[in-house]
Design a protein around this nucleic acid. Sequence first.
DNA 1: CCACTGACTACTT
DNA 2: CAAGTAGCCAGTG
Length: 111
Amino acid sequence: MEEYTRKVLDVILNIPKGRVLTYGGAAALAGNPKGARQVSRILHSMSRNYNLPWHRVINSRGRISLPRKEEQDLQRDLLESEGVIFDEKGSVDLNIFLYQPGHSRKSFGPL
DNA sequence: CCACTGACTACTT
DNA sequence: CAAGTAGCCAGTG
């Protein structure tokens, strides 16, 4: 497996509860800003074996990208149970919930 | 090695 | 907002 793949896994595992990360963001943190698509494939192939928090990974517009509705609902449920808020259009406010290493605040949220 | 795939992204219509 | 285009790159066969 490529080192890049390993780094992506590491990044995903480090997303704090209640935060989300975009595919591109995970790719960038893993050292390959153009590797967003690999992130999605990694999640698909590794989430089974590594117990990854795959639900904390969404696309650059703050929306769920899963193709199947059941999976979308599951991801949304998991995120909401962690405190992530979805607006009426079904998207997450990345300005609030995006995981940004080094930019951590003591508290966050819409309040 | 080549061809194809994909839970992406940014840009343009 | 939806649809099309181009760039991207590791896994798989």
